[in-house]
Design a binder for these strands. Sequence first.
DNA 1: TAAATTAGTTTATATTATAAACTAATTTAT
DNA 2: ATAAATTAGTTTATAATATAAACTAATTTA
Lengths: 93, 93
Amino acid sequence: MFKDLDPLLHSQLRLAVISILVSVKEAEFTYLKEETNATAGNLSVQLQKLKDAEYIEIEKKFSNNYPQTLCKITPIGTKAFANYVKAIKQYIK
Amino acid sequence: MFKDLDPLLHSQLRLAVISILVSVKEAEFTYLKEETNATAGNLSVQLQKLKDAEYIEIEKKFSNNYPQTLCKITPIGTKAFANYVKAIKQYIK
DNA sequence: TAAATTAGTTTATATTATAAACTAATTTAT
DNA sequence: ATAAATTAGTTTATAATATAAACTAATTTA
């Protein structure tokens, strides 16, 4: 009846991050932090988890002499998000 | 941008329970256990949390000489579920 | 040159979820 | 009659997760 909800995406912050990344395709750490109202520490940890699962790619550069972290969703992440959306819909209707 | 997701409902098992209860209005412990594939222990704990929040009412009776636990959603629970649905939709589209 | 800011990471703690162990009564098989 | 299995749960110990606080490291501003 109820399909399992991917635990990696069933987290408010990680879901918000992926939700942003599916639309913009690339976003800075600071942008994600603002949009999600997350603390930097929490965001850092959760991004790492999404990266470990290969749901996102993380590129570290420098911009205006400051470190810049760019995040991008992968095909695996896109697929996982689609599955999550399908699954959660069973619960909310 | 992203509304917070009620932590009480943002849990696979509790969400599944509430999802069932909004439609049937009353369900037995054993029925919920089967439908959600939860272990009895986990279900027992999560039902208690939903009860503490007054999202559900729990009635304990006896049926065929066995204890019977009946669960029913409250107006508070119905409202909370509606809010959760509204909030999660921001994340999945 | 000291203080504040930017952009993060690491670590310790609090919260949450869950499995395992337990209670207590009932039914079934011997 | 009684031992074993089943029903219907609860309690508790542990594992997983989230998050706040502390830290790093460089930059900018006063």
